[in-house]
């Protein structure tokens, strides 16, 4: 997180110093800053793992947008056609995320993929209760959600 802020700051410095506040200039500064931070991360413990985390994050964003669009179409199809194809239900998803930040971000991502909606976290924080809209095969739904969880935790840890 702090690495990303430094990267933004470096890109801003590049845009300021070159006197060119356009999008491509900023992007170029960002790429330069990324290279610089990747060189520096061995020396500075606070940046540790940043150069690996950013590509992972971008790949996760791609994966997430793909899921978002796919699942949105599914829900849209069910809404627009007169018959109901859905099988809603409340399921329990055991999670391995532990801290507040991890659980919050995970819950946000799960809620944003249509077809799943977080209802609650159990008081001992081991289980998320999820309202799923297409519960044809519960194991499959849980496997998909655990895939999302694995990717989120990969970025955060």
């Amino acid at each position: 997180m702090i690495g990303f802020l430094w990267n933004l700051l470096l890109a801003l410095a590049w845009a300021t110093l070159s006197g060119n506040f356009s999008g491509p200039s900023f992007l170029f500064g960002f790429v330069l800053g990324y290279g610089l931070l990747a060189l520096l991360e061995r020396e500075l413990p606070i940046l540790h793992g940043y150069s690996r985390r950013l590509p992972r994050f971008i790949m996760f964003l791609g994966f997430f947008i793909k899921e978002l669009v796919k699942a949105n179409f599914k829900v849209a199809f069910d809404v627009a056609t007169p018959l109901w194809y859905m099988k809603p239900g409340v399921i329990a998803l055991p999670i391995t995320a532990e801290t507040d930040v991890e659980i919050t971000i995970l819950a946000n991502f799960i809620s944003l993929t249509p077809g799943t909606l977080i209802l609650d976290v159990s008081s001992d924080r081991r289980v998320l209760f999820i309202h799923a809209m297409f519960l044809y095969d519960e194991d499959e739904v849980i496997a998909e959600l655990q895939e999302i969880e694995r990717r989120v935790l990969e970025i955060l840890r």
Binding site: G89, A92, L119, D120, S123, R126, F129, L135
Partner: peptide, 27 residues
């Protein structure tokens, strides 16, 4: 109330409305 086509509901009996305590079922 939930829709009558709802196939599963694991949360309803794990919630205590007085204390807002939610069991995980894994204790």
């Amino acid at each position: 109330p939930l829709w009558e086509g709802t196939v599963k509901d694991v949360l309803r009996d794990k919630y205590d409305p007085k204390t807002h305590h939610v069991e995980s079922g894994l204790e």
